[in-house]
Amino acid sequence: MKILVTVKEVATVEDEFEIEGTEIASQYLGADLNEWDDYAVEEAVQLQENGIADEVVTVTIGPEDCEQTIRQALAKGADRAIRVWDDALEGVDLLDVNAKTEILSAVVEAEEPDLVLTGVQAGDDSFGATGVSLAEEIGAQWGAVVNHLEHDLEDGVASVRRELEGGVEELTEIDLPAVLTIQTGINEPRYASLRGIRQAQRKELDVQALADIGVDEGTIESELELTEMYEPESESDVTVWEGSADETAAELGELLREKGVAQ
């Protein structure tokens, strides 16, 4: 069985930042492997270690800068990586779900995986939609917000738990091939070992342009346009205690005594 894991490099924002146009000014941005994708990679690698998967391939839509993040997934055990990028994508503020679906489905067509794992959501733009949209596009089954996957997929069915609201989990049987969107907590993502990091440098990282995967530039234009970005207006009338830790702790202590909840 072959598993394709979609891996995104997400932007992280410093505590204090400035907005320029419809972006956060780049000096306040960092980059990281998307938290949810980290769990998806771990799940795939465990399936491989348990002899259920033969190959784990990652796919990322992103510029050259994100190769370090992709190598993190390789260091944790993925076999090889695909990175799709194109001049046509340069300078696009936001790739919408349709555009990502179009690109990722072309990669699925070429790779023909039995199982695709995505994250529930990307930590930065948080659409939470790419996995299910992709499933529909490639005519596969799917399950959103999966926090448990049975390691017995031989019979062409994935037994999963979907995490619903309020501490309720749904037990579902899903026909393969399928796309599962992976929720945090499904496993314990490993840290890459030094050996893994060294090996990752030698693993295949295949860079593809849109034309290489047979995607027409014209079809990936985002229909969603980001026109404004601003800091949310705070509606709160929060009282901020200032001073040393001892002083602020004393203020809080006094509040708790006033409320009669602590002596």
Partner: peptide
């Protein structure tokens, strides 16, 4: 976006 740090307007 960014876990609630900013709000955005999206046109469709």
């Amino acid at each position: 976006m960014y876990g609630g740090k900013v709000e955005t307007t999206n046109e469709l």
